[in-house]
Each structure stands twice: as structure tokens, then as C-alpha cells.
Amino acid sequence: MGVSPIFCFSQERFSVAKLDQLHAMLAPVVEGLGYDCWGIEYLAQGKHSLLRVYIDHADGIGVEDCEKVSRQVSGVLDVEDPISAEYTLEVSSPGMDRPLFTLPQFAAWAGSQVKIKLRVPFEGRRNFQGLLKGIEEQDVVVQVDDHEFLLPIDSIDKAQVIPRFD
């Protein structure tokens, strides 16, 4: 009697080192076009993998901006070929529910409501939603109800601002 293999498919992300490599490669291209490279996400999903590059600008981002950056970034990715699997490139504005990637971004959005998901549990939980108080050294400070948590930036898998509609 044979044993059937078990396949596990997940929405795994690239390693932090791989994302850093992509950021180092693509940020100068984005910035050379006059935009801020807000962040990069990669969602591995077989043939439906997605590389998302977030761009920002003081005057806002339109479809034309995304098209312009997409053409340039696509050219660099074609030449450098840093991702061996098939993927779709998406260039986007961070939007109102903008993701947060870096300590300066967390500091700039202090006072906002945020959702944070960790790679591994901290004090028994992976999900936090509350008031972003700021940063302390390499930690993000978030207040959930009456408790403040200092979450190490390296343990954050995903963080985003919760938009306010006043």
C-alpha cells in the first residue's frame, strides 16, 4: 500500500531579507520617477503570486502614476529576474488603510488606530488593534484598551492604519 503525499499551500510571504533585496532594487527606480517607495509586499500563491509595490506622493497617486512606475519597475524586474516563480506585478497607492512597513512610518502615523498582525505570538496573541502611540527604539508602541504593548518591529508581519471617516 502506497502513501499519498500531502501538499500544503499557504499565503507565505517572502523572507524579510528577500523583501529588503527587492526594496533595495526597486526603491531607487520609484524615487527616480519622483515618488516615495512606501513599501513592498509579496504574496506567494502558486501561479497567482503577487508582487505589490506601494508608491506615494505629496500630491496623491493616480492611475497614470501607477502605470508609469509599473512600466519602469517591470523593466528592472525583467532584467534582474529576482523572482523565479510566476507572479503579477501591481503598483498601488497605500490608500486610506495604508500598510505600515518602517519605524519612521509608524512614528509618522502615531495617534492613528491600527491593526497589527505578528509573525509569532507575543503575550499569547498575534493580533492587536488599538491606538498607535509611536515607537521606542526598535519597538512599535500600541495601546489596546488600557494596556500598552511594545511590539518589536522585526516580529510584525502586517500592519495597517484603520481609516477614520469623520
Rank of each mutant, 00 (worst) to 15 (best):
Q72N: 14
G62V: 12
G130P: 04
Q138R: 15
L33P: 11
D97Y: 01
F14C: 14
D146A: 02
F122S: 12
D59Q: 13
H48R: 12
L103A: 06
V76D: 02
G46L: 03
D59E: 14
S84M: 11
S74N: 15
G95L: 05
D145N: 10
A58C: 10
Y35K: 05
I61F: 05
K68Y: 07
L103Q: 09
D139T: 12
P82C: 02
S93F: 00
G111N: 00
K47N: 15
F128A: 13
P121V: 07
R52G: 05
I116M: 07
Q72H: 14
R52V: 05
G60V: 01
E86D: 15
R13F: 01
K115C: 10
T88C: 10
L26S: 00
P28E: 02
I83M: 08
M25S: 07
Y42A: 14
V76C: 06
A85I: 13
A17P: 01
E123G: 03
V140W: 04
L132K: 00
K133W: 00
V120S: 14
D36S: 13
H23D: 12
E148T: 07
D36A: 14
G111K: 01
E86L: 13
P104A: 11
F149P: 07
P99Q: 03
F149K: 09
S74G: 15
A17E: 09
Q113V: 06
D65M: 06
E64Y: 10
L77P: 10
L26Y: 01
E80R: 08
P28K: 04
A27K: 00
F149V: 09
D146Y: 02
E41A: 11
H23W: 10
S70M: 04
E67R: 14
V16M: 15
Y35E: 04
E86R: 14
V53P: 00
G39I: 12
D65G: 07
E136K: 06
G62W: 06
L43W: 06
A27Q: 08
H57V: 11
C66S: 12
V142C: 10
K117Q: 15
R52I: 04
I61A: 01
K133H: 04
R52S: 08
E31M: 06
H48T: 04
L26V: 02
C37N: 13
D145E: 14
H23K: 14
Y42R: 05
G75F: 01
W38L: 08
R71H: 11
L50T: 10
I55G: 02
D154V: 09
E137K: 15
R13V: 06
E64L: 12
P82G: 01
R13A: 05
I40Q: 03
V73C: 02
D36E: 11
